[in-house]
Structure formats: C-alpha cells, structure tokens
C-alpha cells in the first residue's frame, strides 16, 4: 500500500482487485492533498458504491480553516472525509463538513481520540459527524477488546465504516492475521451493515 501513496489510479486498481464496493483514498500527508484534489476534480468514473477520503494527519502546514475548506471540496466528491481526532485543534471549524465528517478512533501511540471518554466530547461538538471504527487501533489500546466493545456500544449509532487490519510491532497496518480475525470476529459481526475498508491487502490464503 505504501508504494501506491499518491498514485490514485493505481490505488483504485488495487482496490478493485479486492472489491468494487468501497474505497478510501488517503491523503495522509498534506503533501498529497493537491494531487488528490486534482484526481477527484477530474471526476473520474469510479465503480465504487462508497468512496471515502482520508484527510491529512502528517506534514500539516495549512491553517486549519483553510484545510477544512479544502476537505469540504473533497467531500463534495466523496461519501465521507475521515479525520484523526488528535489533529483537530478547533472542532467548530469542521462543522461545515456536516455528516461527511467521520472521526476515527486512534491507536495507543496517540494522546487523544482513543477511547469513548476521549471521543465523546468531540462528537458533542460535532453532532453530525460519523464514526470510523478502526478495530486494530482499538486492539492496540486494549488487547482484551473491552475498549473496542465500549466504542461500538457508545458510538455504534454513528458508525459509518470500518478500518480492518492487524498491526505490526511498529504499529503499521498489516494484513489481518488469522489470530486477530478470531479475536475480532464478535465485534466485526456487529458491523456487517456498514462498509469495511481493508487497510492492508487481504491475506494470501
């Protein structure tokens, strides 16, 4: 996946190889925003029923208000705009994204946005925002999956889509392992009604 960063056409092809249902185009670095805007601005014919765009969490330089204006432009061409809560300084600036804004729960390396207690105040300020449940991030906080269950209990009605993968020792997204698939199964079964985004290619088997 890393090798495809910024190459939107190849990302679309790679996603199509897995499923024509859903895709997430990730401009994780602000440096990738221009090319993603250009790509979506050309109005490519995308076969997917659900298109999510991931906003930047790295190399951030733009003033937040300007970033949100650009995210809103991307949101006009997508079903969802995912943001990491720990990168949001002024929640009110994001209200203009309305229901397109989707907040993702964070992993153990981050200082905020990891648990229900940390996310609920943000959702209170952004009542139209949806929830992206990253099950591997929740696992990194609590391998017993209690935190993950609490996130679904509390934010399940806001759930818009899932991020599905395992995590490497360095906290990088890797293909879902058989062990994690078993561990995650009860929670994944609670999410059959929303799109799943695989954050790493499916296992070879």
């Amino acid at each position: 996946m890393e090798a495809l960063r910024g190459d939107w056409e190849r990302q679309v092809d790679a996603a199509m190889d897995v499923s024509p249902f859903a895709i997430e185009l990730s401009a994780l670095s602000e440096d990738e925003l221009d090319s993603l805007e250009e790509y979506l601005g050309a109005q490519p014919t995308l076969p997917f029923r659900y298109v999510s765009v991931h906003g930047p969490s790295k190399a951030r330089r733009l003033p937040e208000e300007e970033l949100v204006v650009r995210l809103a432009r991307l949101g006009a061409r997508a079903d969802a705009v995912v943001m990491h809560p720990d990168t949001i300084e002024d929640p009110s600036a994001y209200r203009q994204l309305g229901h397109k804004l989707v907040l993702e729960n964070m992993d153990a390396r981050k200082a905020a946005g990891r648990t229900t207690d940390e996310l609920e105040p943000l959702f209170a300020e952004l009542p139209a925002a949806g929830f992206c449940f990253d099950i591997a991030h929740a696992w990194s906080i609590d391998p017993d999956m209690v935190v993950a269950g609490e996130l679904l209990d509390t934010l399940g009605q806001r759930l818009r889509h899932l991020h599905v993968s395992s995590l490497s020792a360095e906290s990088h997204h890797v293909p879902l392992s058989e062990e994690d698939e078993e561990l995650f199964r009860p929670l994944l079964l609670r999410c059959l009604d929303v799109p799943w985004i695989l954050e790493a290619p499916p296992r070879a088997d």
Binding site: F21, R160, D193, V194, P195
Partner: peptide
Amino acid sequence: RDRVLRGYLDESIKDFRPP
C-alpha cells in the same frame, strides 16, 4: 442466524444506521 442476518444486510450495506 448469520445467514438470516446476511439475508438482510448483504445487499443493503449503507454508511448509516440502523439498517
């Protein structure tokens, strides 16, 4: 039970709840 649930959900996956 999983089959019955999928009978409702597989063709109508949406990014909002409830289904």
